[in-house]
Amino acid sequence: MKALVAVKRVVDANVKVRVKPDNSGVDLTNVKMSINPFCEIAVEEAVRLKEKGTVSEIVVVSIGPKEAQEQIRSSMALGADRGILVEADDSQLGALEVAKILKGVVDAEQPQLILLGKQAIDDDSNQVGQMLGALLGAGQGTFASEVKVEGDKVQVTREIDGGLQTVELSLPAIITTDLRLNEPRYAALPNIMKARKKPLDTKSPADYGVSAVSKLKTVKVEAPAERKAGVQVKSVDELVEKLKNEAKVI
């Protein structure tokens, strides 16, 4: 079966972002960009399913600027077969518009498994997979920590607040990955070279009949309130004293 994996180019997880002085957004000039960590887990899962013989082809799609090619190429270096870049100003698109574009890609490619990360670490929305599920009328296994494909069904173990829940979905189905689903591999140099030769199509949102910009408008972006500087205590006695008499929390 075919698997489609959606990946997003985001600011690297280790970068401490700074808010622009004019409060229009976060300053991303000269900041290291990477594949969203949850998307990387989705690529890895697809590759593992291919290694098991469950999946025969992996298509990677990214919606974003031209530079998102880099994230598609790194997914190919991990084992994806081909890529689709939907070139768009992703700051104009909300989760709903992204889900609509992905629906267009799914309609064209007809994958049985659609893998996404549970959330992107830039806007922290955690919406696209669920919205795509609604638009396709397909089942969704969100926050997946285990995926088992059996015939025309997939069993997904999900991380929920109290523990774990397992659901069974009919294919085609959407899976959004949680951290503990797998540990992504590193791309080997020969695979990085090979990935350069794999096919990569470029499309636009209009190719899928989507042109709308999000109806959510970001009015301003601020730095979070600073905490007042704390103090180092020298002993347990001092800590207990401070907690009792100064902070009054115990």
Partner: peptide
């Protein structure tokens, strides 16, 4: 904004064809 809310609400929003705000 629990795992249940996050699982259900975006799906409902898309069915209604409206954007959603998380958290």
């Amino acid at each position: 904004s629990t795992t249940t809310g996050k699982n259900v609400l975006p799906r409902a929003a898309a069915l209604l064809d409206v954007s959603m705000i998380t958290d």
